[in-house]
């Protein structure tokens, strides 16, 4: 465990980058969402009609704003940090363990930011003008647990995906990385087809589990990416 703390410190060397940027991204999402609602409201009048408020509940900014950045953090960790960690005498296993701990911290920070955002959103009556940013359908309509866990697993899945593909690239080069990506795409399509064929069963699960079904699926994907990145990092070279 002590040996994993060194790569963790390496991951956290630039704290603003790995812990602060997700907060900044969500702050921008809040500002942009308020601006959009303000523009709509200035044309339709305040308070917003129920139809428009319902529309803002479909805001997926929190879902789609951070993944690109998080994937890039995963890629950089798996390539640049990996090279420096090995140069400084870390093993592949301790690098993976430390970096995965770092991913958990980034995800925790991202989920906490979203949860605090939800609290502020409620406190301010949806940012004073009826704008929904965190209290949205996709994250359980204001269910704090769904939002926190959902954002956490989404973040760690993105970080792990970046780490997996970054490591595959380092271990196997461009061509085989593309082939691995294509193979994973085929598997994903197969699973989606399986779900479509068994739609009644899936809908029954959806009724029983609600948003937790999606959260569980993303958690399973994150676990698969982490396991894949561990397998890949054991063969990665510099």
């Amino acid at each position: 465990m002590t040996h994993a703390l060194r790569p963790l410190k390496l991951y956290l060397a630039n704290r603003y980058y790995v812990l602060g940027v997700p907060l900044f991204i969500y702050a921008v999402v809040v500002v942009l969402s308020i601006a959009v609602v303000a523009i709509i409201g200035s044309m339709t009048g305040f308070p917003l009609s129920e139809e428009i408020r319902e529309g803002t509940r479909n805001n997926a900014g929190v879902l789609f704003s951070a993944p690109g950045f998080l994937v890039s953090v995963g890629v950089f960790a798996a390539t640049r940090n990996f090279a420096l960690a090995l140069a400084l005498g870390a093993t592949r296993r301790s690098f993976w363990a430390g970096t995965t701990l770092g991913f958990a911290l980034t995800s925790l920070m991202t989920a906490t930011a979203a949860s605090v955002g939800l609290g502020l959103e409620r406190l301010t009556g949806h940012w004073f003008i009826g704008a929904h940013v965190f209290d949205v359908h996709v994250f359980g309509d204001g269910d704090l647990a769904v939002l926190f866990v959902g954002v956490f697993v989404m973040a760690i899945a993105c970080l792990a995906a970046g780490a997996l593909f970054g490591t595959l690239f380092r271990a196997y080069g461009t061509v085989r990385t593309v082939l691995w990506g294509a193979a994973m795409g085929v598997v994903a399509l197969g699973l989606l087809t399986l779900a479509a064929v068994n739609d009644e069963r899936v809908l029954a699960w959806q009724d029983a589990w609600g948003e937790w079904l999606s959260v569980s699926v993303i958690a399973a994907v994150a676990a698969a990416f982490l396991a894949g990145s561990y397998a890949a990092v054991r063969r990665a070279t510099i």
């Binding site: 950089f76 140069a87 870390a90 301790s94």
Partner: peptide, 23 residues
């Protein structure tokens, strides 16, 4: 192999060492 106590006895910073872009 993957023995961390042995690995930390090594230091090899390459002439074209990669560093995190943010460092």
């Amino acid at each position: 192999g993957e023995d961390p106590r042995q690995a930390q006895r090594l230091c090899f910073v390459r002439e074209n060492q990669l560093y995190n872009d943010a460092f």
